[in-house]
């Protein structure tokens, strides 16, 4: 009924994964250490920095504030899967063109968080973009280039 080891079956980037995990293992550690998906990063481990952002059942969450055990039956998507599908190819290109990343530590979380806003359609205001990424720390860029890139992609997608 309750256990320190839990069996989980979930899909990660479209593939079914069956594992036994420690109850205390959080989702991002499970993805990185058990599944070797190291695109999601571990920063603050208390929900502040946003480096561990992944998608669970279609919405972005903090990978450090959710247990792997809670993901039984869930659909998890990481930056690896979202990149491979080409869903954010334009956003990634815009980040590169505008120098919206330097060290890249925050970038996977930044991209997934931005994509959630962009997927709502329309061209959000710069204030709205700022608010959306307010939970993702970047220590390199000063954010302006990131906001430029997200805004440019919103405009470009609107013209398609």
């Amino acid at each position: 009924m309750s256990a320190e080891r839990c069996n989980v079956t979930l899909t990660v980037n479209g593939e079914t994964v069956v594992e036994t995990v420690d109850a205390r293992t959080n989702l991002v550690d499970f993805l990185r250490e058990t599944l070797s998906l190291t695109g999601s990063h571990v920063g603050c481990e208390h929900g502040v920095c946003g480096a561990c952002t992944v998608r669970v059942d279609g919405v972005v969450v903090r990978g450090c504030l959710m247990l792997a055990a809670q993901c039984d039956g869930a659909k998890v998507e990481t930056i690896e899967g979202v990149s491979d599908l080409g869903e954010i190819a334009d956003l990634q290109a815009a980040f590169e063109q505008r120098n919206a990343l330097q060290c890249g530590f925050c970038t996977p979380g930044m991209l997934l968080t931005a994509q959630e806003l962009l997927a709502q359609g329309g061209v959000p205001s710069r204030d709205k973009i700022r608010e959306q990424i307010s939970g993702n720390y970047c220590r390199c860029t000063g954010y302006q280039a990131i906001i430029d890139a997200i805004e440019a992609v919103a405009e470009a997608r609107g013209k398609k």
């Binding site: 929900g47 972005v60 903090r62 806003l117």
Partner: peptide, 12 residues
């Protein structure tokens, strides 16, 4: 509500 946490926090 908009003042509570961030998008990813409010999703959970």
């Amino acid at each position: 509500l908009p003042h509570i946490g961030h998008a990813a926090i409010r999703n959970r």
